[in-house]
Design a protein around this nucleic acid. Structure first.
Lengths: 200, 200
DNA sequence: CTCATTTCTAAACAAGCGGTCAATTACCCG
DNA sequence: CGGGTAATTGACCGCTTGTTTAGAAATGAG
């Protein structure tokens, strides 16, 4: 064979994710990546392709990261509203876990998507679609189980909750963790769902 | 005196706002501005200063634009919940009015704020603070008037609504106007506020 | 040991960036 | 009708961007 890699690509990918997360796509130069990942310019291109290709891999890495976190918190929950608030708590916890408040890499990407090529743009938009799918399924169950007394359709309720989540994703960028908790608590209250534990 | 300006600075400022709104700060080059505003590069610098100074003026212009729109819709409304939903409707209408769905220039700026100098960053963050102030005042009135029956504090309710609004601001970038309407309708429903007209 | 294969290193590339300049042009006032 | 003043013009600056190249270095197989 030949000379082996002097670094772990997966580790470097993770570091790249953290950098993009903190700085955004456009504010992160290739030089930044070279400095932070501590690998040579050429090695970067050789293993990940160009900047946008790297970003696509970063996005996929992040997505897997986030969704595994969400699903881990979803496991023991039941259907409908309990499931919804397990989901929302997982979102809160995921946003609170990061060292610096950078919001959600994917939601941030949606907003600065002008810079991306159509395929990458599609990948980014896919995230919102998936989110909508999750929430819609949950709200349909909640309505079917009679857990929420409203004249609204499950679709409208799902839109409501998805927009709420998107709001949380961007608000967390300001580091307003308490506002996130309040927001979820308020949603629980107005939906008539009594959460155990932390109520103000 | 001397030679007069061959263009209207206010008009050019407005055009610059539209461009920044559509493309974002970092994705908009000075060349883009020169091409779109149809004024010379040097004239641009001469009248507005450098790119960031121009962006600051754009932000101020946008803010005045938006707040005058909001206040115009707030005029005939009363206090508390009616005022809240007049506010939310104004937000919806403002977002729907734009030819392309670009979201909110200020909220977009909050997310890509890494690129700004501290003073401009402060100006951008100020927007969220103002929003919080508006909503908090409204919710305090609503609670005081007994329009909302919940065990939550006005502050927590305000966090809830502000995050909802932030979600609307970013969701509108995807062009999901119907989702915005649904979201507001759902909020009205769960708050027990009966809106006249468009329900579902 | 030798060679084929692959990574690494550092330098360089063209293109675009934000920002500036001297020279020119157009205007208003006296 | 000049003359002073300020806007305009288009070329130009140094720098950074993303990307590529040719050569040196390091590995495992025969």
């Amino acid at each position: 064979m030949a000379r082996p890699l002097a670094f772990d690509p997966q580790e470097k990918l993770h570091q790249a994710m953290l950098l993009f997360w903190r700085q955004g796509y456009e504010s992160t130069s290739v030089q930044d990546l070279v400095d932070t990942l501590q690998i040579n310019r050429f090695s970067l291109y050789n293993t990940f392709g160009d900047k946008e290709a790297l970003y696509e891999r970063v996005i996929r890495h992040y997505r897997a990261h986030v969704f595994s976190h969400l699903e881990a918190h979803l496991q023991p929950a039941s259907e409908g509203l309990p499931r919804l608030f397990a989901y929302l708590d997982a979102v809160c916890e995921g946003l609170a876990r990061q060292p610096e408040p950078c919001g959600c890499l994917l939601q941030n990407s949606v907003i600065s998507r002008n810079a991306f090529s159509p395929p990458l743009q599609g990948l980014v938009d896919e995230f919102i679609t998936t989110l909508q799918g999750h929430v819609l399924a949950i709200m349909e169950a909640a309505v079917a189980l009679g857990q929420v007394n409203t004249e609204l359709s499950p679709a409208a309720l799902a839109d409501f909750v998805v927009i709420q989540i998107q709001g949380m994703l961007v608000a967390s960028k300001g580091g307003a963790q308490e506002a996130l908790q309040n927001s979820v608590a308020a949603l629980a209250s107005v939906l008539g769902y009594a959460k155990l534990g932390l109520s103000n």
